[in-house]
């Protein structure tokens, strides 16, 4: 199923996710990070990926949480010493830094959950093949081989068991030897087939002239519009970052956050960047919900007051 942000051109998606990862790494600021985290979570929920997220969440929290807990015990930088633990100073800065690291990690992990859902292998290969067509073809072909080999190995194991070549019985030595035999069978068979594949490729003119690449994707006007929006709203925080906005200094000494109007502009632009896909997704949801509403004048006269025109649709 693809709709909303997922149905957009792969370039748009890749720009968005690249931006998210970049900002998560660069903008070391709790407000920005929280905004990004909440934005991506919102997007995932809108895309109906709550379940996938929930399945992975314990693992992500454990990973990120352990960073937050461990950092103060290993880093002793900072000037505000809170207490001593086993004769080691535990500083406020180190705790805050650990919490920030946790946020960064969590954000990046969740960005990747969303990325996996939005940018499928197909889309990635499409983007990849416009950069490096030959390597992309090779990658695609090898990708096909992974499940193919698995299926074949299963067949081979089954049959070879009837002639005593079995990796689940016998001494370790015998098992290893049998394992190698099974792999050998797989390899000989597959190489044999690869020859035929090569013939088939040659017969269909592979390497005859420069390859073009077929694409299922077309840039439409909405794609271009969203892309421009993303680039512009992404450039502003980036330039701001170069000027020193959007970061928070913790080491060597915690500095209080400052609020200026420039900071506000950078933050607003950042918010726009993060929320554009959620906006698209939300708009689509809303259109479905209110599909009774006619968006354009219809030739069919609509009489007011019939029972089909319920109060909700008006």
């Amino acid at each position: 199923m693809s709709s909303g942000f997922r149905s957009m051109h792969p370039t748009v998606a890749i720009v968005y996710y690249a931006g998210l990862v970049l900002f998560a790494a660069l903008l070391f600021h709790p407000v920005y990070l929280m905004t990004e985290l909440i934005g991506v979570l919102g997007l995932l929920l809108l895309q109906g990926q709550g379940k996938t997220l929930l399945r992975g969440l314990p693992f992500y929290l454990l990973m990120a949480g352990s960073v937050a807990v461990l950092n103060p015990f290993f880093s002793h930088r900072g000037s505000n010493i809170l207490f001593y633990f086993m004769d080691q100073p535990v500083t406020l800065e180190a705790i805050l830094y650990g919490l920030m690291m946790m946020l960064v990690l969590l954000t990046i992990l969740i960005v990747f959950v969303s990325y996996n859902y939005t940018v499928t292998t197909d889309k990635f290969m499409y983007l990849f093949s416009s950069v490096a067509p030959k390597s992309a073809l090779l990658t695609l072909m090898s990708l096909r081989f992974v499940p193919l080999f698995q299926r074949r190995l299963r067949q081979i194991t089954e049959i070879q068991r009837t002639r005593g070549i079995d990796t689940s019985k016998g001494s370790v030595r015998k098992r290893m030897k049998d394992g190698m035999t099974l792999l050998k069978v797989l390899l000989t068979w597959s190489l044999e087939e690869a020859l035929q594949t090569a013939d088939s490729m040659k017969a269909r003119g592979y390497g005859v002239s420069k390859r073009s690449s077929y694409a299922n994707y077309k840039m439409d006007r909405q794609d271009i519009f969203v892309l421009v929006m993303l680039v512009v709203s992404g450039l502003i925080p980036l330039l701001g970052w170069l000027q020193g906005y959007g970061t928070m200094q913790i080491y060597p000494r915690l500095k209080p956050l400052e609020y200026t109007w420039q900071e506000a502009v950078v933050y607003a632009s950042f918010c726009l960047f993060v929320l554009i896909p959620s906006g698209l997704e939300g708009k689509e949801k809303w259109i479905w919900r209110s599909s009774q509403r006619t968006g354009y004048p219809s030739a069919i006269p609509m009489k007011p007051g019939t029972r089909f025109m319920s109060s909700r649709s008006r």
């Binding site: 695609l140 072909m141 035929q196 594949t197 088939s200 003119g205 002239s209 390859r211 077929y214």
Partner: peptide, 20 residues
């Protein structure tokens, strides 16, 4: 053994891509 690509549409496009 003759099939080169992983999905049907890609397989169909393969020969045309070859000839540019």
């Amino acid at each position: 053994a003759q099939i080169v690509m992983d999905t049907v549409w890609h397989e169909l496009a393969f020969s045309m891509e070859n000839l540019g």
